[in-house]
């Protein structure tokens, strides 16, 4: 930090500039090429909207919205399913008590989403293994292990498998790219170029990106399982048996 002040400090206007070390060196945004909103942006918006409406119209012409028989409070259909976007949650309800799956988990997800920008999550976007490597290795391995044990305790296999896979993938990046599994894949295989690219992509991810990707993967898998793989009595079935 550098503070300049004249000899007549009381009368001369002063300015103290505090620069955070993470601020980019250049504060002035580079001269960007600007274009007129009309027609450049407006026309693109209209085209996107039209494509959407055409697709929606075609889908609506050929696929009918479902309508079952009149509601009967005395006869539960088997299986009884919520709308598809809640089926991930309903799948969790199969494993956890309602207080956990119906209230605690959704509330935690919403709170976690809301606080993202306030806890400086992913602001610097440094890759996961770029600093404090041993500490992060032990912390993250322990965290993933606890999560896996927790899911195993409740027998949530549909969530455990992707969690373990993503955890392994995250930790497999830890050794330098000359050694370990990635070293083998990158240097000794016919697909070396492909694996180099994958390794570079994974190694660049920040912790927040890993967590978000894990959450999205889990949400998608649970929703797909709940929608396509659950039959009478919430038992496992194949999609073609539904």
């Amino acid at each position: 930090m550098h503070v300049e002040s004249g000899s007549q400090g009381a009368t001369l206007p002063q300015r103290v500039a505090l620069l955070h070390r993470q601020l980019p060196a250049r504060l002035e945004a580079p001269e960007e090429k600007l274009v007129m909103t009309f027609p450049h942006l407006i026309v693109r918006e209209v085209i996107a909207m039209e494509i959407l409406l055409i697709v929606l119209g075609l889908v609506s012409l050929f696929y009918d919205a479902p309508l079952e028989s009149l509601a009967n409070p005395n006869k539960t259909p088997n299986p009884a399913k919520a709308p598809w976007y809640f089926l991930g949650l309903q799948e969790l309800l199969h494993y956890f008590p309602p207080v956990v799956a119906g209230v605690l988990i959704p509330a935690l997800v919403v709170i976690a989403l809301i606080i993202i920008p306030y806890f400086r999550v992913n602001f610097e976007r440094d890759s996961l293994w770029s600093q404090r490597r041993p500490a992060r290795l032990y912390g993250l391995s322990g965290g993933v292990l606890l999560l896996i044990l927790f899911l195993a305790w409740f027998r949530v296999w549909a969530a455990l498998a992707p969690t373990a896979l993503i955890g392994l993938l995250m930790i497999s990046i830890f050794p330098s790219r000359e050694r370990g599994l990635w070293g083998f894949l990158i240097h000794r295989t016919a697909w070396a170029r492909f694996f180099t690219g994958v390794h570079a992509g994974l190694a660049g991810l920040s912790l927040a990106a890993w967590i978000m990707s894990w959450f999205i993967t889990l949400a998608v898998i649970l929703t797909v399982v709940g929608t396509l793989f659950r039959g009478p009595g919430w038992s496992f079935v194949w999609p073609w048996q539904l």
């Binding site: 005395n74 006869k75 539960t76 088997n78 299986p79 009884a80 309903q90 309800l93 309602p98 119906g102």
Partner: peptide, 22 residues
């Protein structure tokens, strides 16, 4: 008692089943 679906009594198995979450 889980989420309010109406259970079914299955005579052959001698048990009561909930169709919603098993």
């Amino acid at each position: 008692t889980h989420l309010g679906c109406i259970t079914r009594h299955v005579e052959e198995e001698g048990a009561i089943f909930c169709p919603c979450h098993g």
